[in-house]
Design a protein around this nucleic acid. Sequence first.
DNA 1: TAAAATATTTAGGTTAACCTAAATTACACT
DNA 2: AGTGTAATTTAGGTTAACCTAAATATTTTA
Lengths: 225, 225
Amino acid sequence: MYKKITTSVQDYLKVIYELTAAGQSASTSALAVRLKLAPASVTGMMQKLASTKPALVEYHKHRGVKLTAGGRRAALEVIRHHRLIEAWLVETLGYSWDEVHSEAEKLEHVISEEFEARIASALGYPLRDPHGEPIPSADLVMPPDQGIALAKLKPVQEACVLRVHAQDAGFLKHLDQLGLVIGARLEVLEVSPYDQVMQIQLRGRAGTIALGPAITNRVFVSTSD
Amino acid sequence: MYKKITTSVQDYLKVIYELTAAGQSASTSALAVRLKLAPASVTGMMQKLASTKPALVEYHKHRGVKLTAGGRRAALEVIRHHRLIEAWLVETLGYSWDEVHSEAEKLEHVISEEFEARIASALGYPLRDPHGEPIPSADLVMPPDQGIALAKLKPVQEACVLRVHAQDAGFLKHLDQLGLVIGARLEVLEVSPYDQVMQIQLRGRAGTIALGPAITNRVFVSTSD
DNA sequence: TAAAATATTTAGGTTAACCTAAATTACACT
DNA sequence: AGTGTAATTTAGGTTAACCTAAATATTTTA
């Protein structure tokens, strides 16, 4: 159906998918920031992707793009590759969750479907990557995101960390040092009214820790109630 | 030292290394055939590789190229990646020796040094890939090739298969079906004088098999004497 | 609602890595 | 030593994916 979807195009599609999934519009400038490209380059690529035989995106000047069904499929294929590779690097090569993103970012574009199938099978068909993000199924259905933002909790609520929405290595290493890892159990002690800084207590750890919104909006948890 | 050695350049360097190691000259046309490119493209690339700050090749018009020390290092780095990846696909994902080449061909260009180190360690620092080819060491020294060509043997000599110099999937699958795999033990029964067809008997297998030079020149063995 | 600020697009490069066709050089042999 | 063939190089494109600077739209704000 599609000729050869290049690495660059795969990156564009992935970012469009992610922006759209986060409820934001896939505007030229948002794409340019995420992809670290000049806005003019993004415009050019959008025009191209919208005008290939089976279009990958739907493009309306000055109002961003949306993925077509084919574009969405291609994006999910790359995201599935990315997340399976991350899971597998952690599982079989002892990588930590902060190291896998950059490696997966390169491998995701070159592995075969055979390879994808073999790692999925070797890992027992995992549903989530090392950050708790859902892995699209082999037939490219994205499972729903897990958990609610930690920022939404009120004092004295208890919760369990399900997912961390981040890819920056430094940020992830920091969370790891705090003990804020997948499966960690915590209790919200208090929330400061003006800056939303949250005091939490991690089960099995001494002392409390203070977390700003930059963190609490990226950590997703389940609550018992 | 070197800016960014692209995937294409890595491919050129690898083929130059292989031709040179096989005692052949790395001529424009030989490179063009191996890389499946037009000769004119090869000439252009050779001129470029010879004229970058620290040159990767030494180039003399009409008489092919030789790798510089830097070029050789870059080539060995890629070959080490390739062979480690092959070993690791067979070892951990159950690939067969005829399936690994094409996958490794893509992955070799994108893995990090960290990844290389981790698979080398996970495999216990293997010395040879699934075809018996030597894996350059971490400090980029290529171990000597193992074995002598099966074609060199005389009737009634016994031998053990150490290495198969081939990457074509069909060819390797064929050898596998014959039972001509790494470690197989065999006895040369007779060699036909005009076409060099060799009759061999594989230990643990019924019947004899006949092999032409296209095969016996690519299978390398050790003999007891 | 008009001007200012911001976002986006157009126009016109650049680089890497290919290609084909034509010209040239090297080599092999009578 | 001259000539024909084969190998190689030169010349002049092409494509993909970027860039900067200038032009134009859109949105915000006074």
